[in-house]
Amino acid sequence: MSEPERHPALDALAQAEVPGAVQARIVAGAQARVARHRPLAPWIAAAIASGAVAASALALWVARPAPAGDPAPQPSVQAVPGHRVLAEPGARWQVVEALGDGQRVALSAGAAEFAVQPLRGDDAYVVETPQARVRVVGTRFRVAVEGDCTAVAVSEGVVQVSRLDGTEPASLTAGQQRRICPSPAAQPPRAGVLGPPPGQAWVQQALELIGRGEQPAQARTLMERYLAAYPDGPLAQEALYYAARLALEAGDRPAALARARAFVQRFPDSHRTAWLEGRLPELGAE
């Protein structure tokens, strides 16, 4: 039996060149990711190494506290794979434990914005403050410890917010906010909590499917159903983005182009716009 030789069909691959624009985008993107990171503060690194922060054996990143007297502190961005945390100056937070692909984060002071990638059903991303627990499926939101209270504001997606003991749970969707204080008397009117908006279940179910990597066609149907029923609903941004990506992955280029165009026009300031804009030419946009 003869020894198999190198197949000539691989010649074309061996000679394939990476486009210069791709190389430039990778380098720029990597540099941007690096710029968003800061090294561990020496005292925190020492604490972790000595076991003083026992619960944080799985801690990946801890925000550097703003130096005293810093005249114009800049927000620091810390990241772990799949998720981003924009810790504002003075924020104190740390990753306490890993929860599958998610994690549990303790925010003891200050404010931070979290951008969480869709997670599988069993995983979770949880932010805890002295007053509140915020549980995430996949979204972008800000949590601030303000004196004795905690304020949560959602800019994309859906989060579950409760008191730290799990009581008074409520869903917050894009544009909504909630403030949790020690006693009911201290709480302002909960005008921002209106209960689940119509169609939220469709989007939530779709996000869960996406997070589990299952039934993309069903996820796309649910997103499209929401967009048809509530084109200007509070979750339209979320639904439009995923409808575009799901259509793209399904090979439905006309639908992907239409959805991507609509997203870029309606939400030019979204952090997702650049990615979709970059796909427009290959989808046939002129």
Binding site: V22, I26, V27, G29, A30, V34, G278
Partner: peptide, 22 residues
Amino acid sequence: LRGVAPGDAEELAQEVLAVAWR
């Protein structure tokens, strides 16, 4: 070559380089 779509491969390469830096 391992089957990642080109757009995703760009992001993946960025992350690999960022991980290397860290």
